[in-house]
Structures are given as C-alpha cells and as structure tokens.
Amino acid sequence: MRNVVVRDAEAAVKDIKDGHTVMVGGFGGAGLPKGVITAVLDAGVRELVVISNNAGSSDDDLSLWFGAGIVRKIICSYPRNAQQFAEQYRAGTVELELVPQGTLVERIRAGGAGLGGFLSPVGVGTVFADGKEKIAAQGREFILELPLRADFTFIKGNLADSLGNITYNKSARNHCAVMATAGDTVAVEVDRIVDVGELDPENIVTPCIFVDRVFTRSR
C-alpha cells in the first residue's frame, strides 16, 4: 500500500536544488511548516525563488532564509514587518514580485488546476496592471494573471494518514490547501500521523493524490 511518510524534515526536502522555486504555506505563523525552514537551510541550497504570503516576521520563519541570503526572489503579498527581508531588499540583493493576496492564491490555484491563467478585475487602473495583458470581457476590463507552480511545496497540516490525506487546523489551512495542488513535490509537516481509515473522509481537505511526503516535526 502507498506510504508517503518520511523520517523527518531533512528527508522531506531531499533533492531540493539551487535555483528551485519553492512554495511555503502559512499566513504569519499559522500554516507555516517550521521544520522545513531549518531543513532547507541545512540542505545548503541557494538562489531560491520563494512563493509565500509573507516574507518572515519572527526568528523561526522565512526570516532565516533571508538572513542566510539563500533567496533570489520572493513572490508574495505582504512582506511588511519583515526585518531580514527588508535589509536584503534595501541592499538590492533580493527581487520582490508583489501580488495582491487573492491574486496570489488564485494564480497558485490556476497552476495546480492546469489552467493557463485567469481574468481578474483586481488591480485594473493601478500599478498592479503594469506590464500585464488587458482583456475586455462582458463589458468589463480585466487583467490576465498567469499561473504559478513550484518545484517544491512545503505546507503545514494537522493530521495525515500514511497515504498522504491531510486535515488542517482552523485558520492554518489558509494558502496550504491550494499550494498542495501546485508543486511537483509536495511535502507536508503535520502534528500527528494516524492509521489509514482513521480520518473521516468528510474532513479530508487535501486528498492524498496531491501529497508526496508527510512527516512530523521532531525538533
């Protein structure tokens, strides 16, 4: 029987390479896979392109990646209160693509759903339309927004079974459930791994078809 459980965070990030695009779930600390943060640092990769809502605001999150200088570019919606990122940004050593929060998650959804993009009214008539294709439909102006995918998706769940079915805890679901659909390799840090059949099928938010690796945080 399928079993996607791996030993630890180190095993969950195996085969990550320099220059990879990496999605990291979470809104603030909720939904952030903290074990992965240190495992990616330990893996010694550089030049990462990161897709996440924020750019780190405490000492155990993406701030560590910016502090170590391993991020080339971040695609996010709200990189405020992010001291390590801000230092790199001011120094011009990291590139920022600022995306409205709803557009960010919908671009990821499009990437995971095999769509070529979508037409959004958000940003029309503002700097967020700059450089993007404008398309009129149903008498209204839209911006063509393109999909996002990643080499690796790292998210945080609550429970997993060994098949890789995932539940989430409260607002920690945020971007995680959508990001799970849009990574070539999807690794999920969970609080607990249960036997197959223990999760109520009605409560499974991310079905195992999307999930490649599951682990519980040991440190």
């Binding site: 919908e106 607002s171 971007h175």
Partner: peptide, 30 residues
C-alpha cells in the same frame, strides 16, 4: 495561534462559524 485574524492576532470563532482555504475566502471577497 492557528486561529488568527488578518492582522495576525488571536481570535475566537463564534457559533456557526467556519474555516476555509484562501481561494474560497477570496472568492467570497472578489
């Protein structure tokens, strides 16, 4: 700390409340 608001401060959920992913949340908004 898994139950926070958009300002990243802890909140509670009222009776009849619900949780959902960001895509559905922004579908409500957009």
């Amino acid at each position: 700390w898994d139950l926070i608001n958009a300002g990243k401060m802890p909140i509670s959920l009222k009776r009849g409340g619900s949780y959902f992913d960001s895509s559905l949340s922004f579908a409500m908004m957009r």
